[in-house]
Write a protein that binds this DNA or RNA. Structure first.
Lengths: 338, 338
DNA sequence: ACAATAATTGTGAACCTTCACACAAAGCCG
DNA sequence: CGGCTTTGTGTGAAGGTTCACAATTATTGT
């Protein structure tokens, strides 16, 4: 049927190098207890036969695959996409491969399917990007059947093994920025309320205002998209909301919001100061350049992988939540009131 | 060391169900030759022991892992990112997992590293997203050591097994659109010249003009980013280029270009009509909404996976290039000349 | 040169499945 | 009711590696 060249086995290499297969194994795994001479001989045989160890056989006996699984919800959104990329990079640096699957919702069933679908017993650890309400910790423990896992972008304050960026802090940062610029009427457009990050950003916006004795302005829930931000802002304007500051849940919605404001002959930032969240690469080129919050996804990726690997190697590693702080980036979409 | 519950083996399930392990295997693999009664008994044992087949052992004997590997260059760019997502989805639908790794350049070495790093002999097929000049077909054949592979987003016209979107056609679409609107002075900002898509878009822009007897305007190479588009446009303006139409290599650069034009008191589309490429979700919310080219990445993902799987199952599958056509999307950044 | 020690190499079992085949039981026909 | 087919189940080997340990060879000090 196929004329694919049959792959050489360790035994064949051993034969050709006139050693035992155990010695070949030693060479492959960089064992020091093998003389320079034989090492060379074995290496030549490996090269000549174009030998590559069979990973399946290796993991069968070592009970290790050096593969991590990443299951993510909302992969098309900026946050999850950044996490994916950075987690992959971090895994690669640590010598792990990453099998990646995307899910449509975070219910038990979806996760089960992603988990069973293939990787079954093949992965050493699991990373779950679950930014929305879904299966709880105990359910995940049973789904993962003993394979260590860490969650990313989950509810802040959860005691599950997880890594998050402090959303409340970030949202407080932008809101306070507006307050410091003298704004007193500050409205908000949030992301989908079932996203932890959206809920926390909205809540923190509200609290930042209340904390300094200001009345929170109108708040609308939208869908992270430019289109949604556009619609939400039109709705805000249509219902006669009055505000000079607008806290938007992410940069895409901020883009849409600015489009709607401009359409309504409101100047940015002279009439309305707008802030976003995420600092997507384009944000600096919006008209005007957007004031927003930057999250260190690179650090997130590294922390996540590092944490998971220590969970794999030392099961006694304590379970907790690691929290990273985001940063305010001030540009031209915000200005002093009046 | 670890108190992870030891995983049940097939043999243990067999014992508990009072059958042979072969029968358990049959139940797992949905073999019809097993009576309803025993099937139930075995299934109960499986559930009770929380048994999951050992994938490593399975692939060792079947020489199949049901895992595909995706190696991608430029994962942070819109095109590759879309491909990744859609290929993953397509693979999942076909019952394959996807191990994903990203590379910094497309040299032999990088690819070798990504390939060896782990998957070694573990994947059934390989997908290479190599949008830039790099290792050639023969090198890839030797690197993949007999594992079937298909390339995505490679040079148009290549005879390697590959799937591409017709870049030349797309670029011709937008350029002709401008010509039809009466524009005669049409400049261009291209992506990095080492990207196949960039080179083809630029070349096709030029050819579309020449074909109707027009002199191509100034052309500048940039870097796909909004920032790059901004800089390139300023440079274009600084060197006194005169144009009423601007063909930009992707939507992000178009965003930057529009920022630069606006800064220069040029109105869009009244003074300059601008077109992009990609139709990113935000493009409809640029100010003004961007005329651009839409690529069907979903179809690309499906085609790619389908092709690769047939290569895996039927090695006699002919090697060729599959070409998909993109679509023009007209919005408000283009208007009739004068 | 000799024992004692260290360094290197080999041996056989184990890891958990599936595969090809052999066998047993049940159903059918005349 | 005996031979035939069909259906259901068991057996032993194979797949390619690593592990614990045993065996061999080289090195060292005296």
């Amino acid at each position: 049927m196929s004329n694919i060249p049959k792959r050489a086995t360790m035994h064949e290499v051993a034969l050709r190098a006139a050693v035992s297969s155990q010695t070949v194994s030693r060479v492959i795994n960089g064992d020091v207890h093998v003389s320079k001479k034989t090492k060379q001989r074995v290496q030549r045989a490996i090269d000549e036969l174009n030998y590559q160890p069979n990973r399946a056989a290796q993991s069968l006996v070592t009970r290790r695959s050096n593969i991590l699984e990443l299951i993510t919800f909302g992969a098309s959104h900026y946050g999850p996409a950044q996490m994916l990329g950075n987690i992959q990079a971090a895994a690669q640096e640590s010598g792990y491969g990453l099998v990646y699957s995307s899910i449509e919702d975070t219910t038990r069933d979806s996760i089960t399917r992603a988990l069973d679908n293939l990787s079954g017993r093949l992965v050493d650890g699991i990373i779950l990007i679950t930014p929305v309400l879904g299966a709880n910790y105990d359910e995940l423990v049973s789904l993962c059947r003993g394979t260590p896992f860490v969650q990313v972008d989950i509810e802040q304050g959860s005691s599950a093994p997880s890594v998050v960026i402090d959303q409340a802090y970030g949202s407080r940062l932008v809101t306070q920025h507006l307050i410091e610029l003298g704004h007193r009427q500050i409205s908000e457009i949030g992301g989908p309320a079932n996203w932890f990050a959206a809920a926390q950003r909205t809540q923190s916006w509200r609290r930042a205002l209340v904390d300094v004795g200001l009345e929170p302005g109108a708040s609308i829930e939208s869908d992270w998209s430019a289109h949604g931000g556009y619609q939400a802002t039109r709705q805000l304007l249509a219902q006669g909301a009055s505000f000079t500051g607008l806290v938007v849940g992410n940069d895409q919605m901020a883009l849409g919001a600015m489009a709607a404001l401009t359409e309504h002959s409101l100047r940015i930032p002279e009439d309305v100061s707008v802030v976003g969240f995420d600092d997507i690469p384009e944000a600096a080129y919006f008209a005007p350049a957007l004031t927003t919050v930057q999250q260190d996804f690179r650090a997130l990726g590294r922390q996540t992988v590092e944490y998971l690997i220590s969970l794999i190697n030392r099961p006694e590693t304590p379970l907790h939540q690691r929290v990273l702080k985001p940063q305010l980036v001030v540009r031209n979409s915000t200005t002093r009131m009046g």
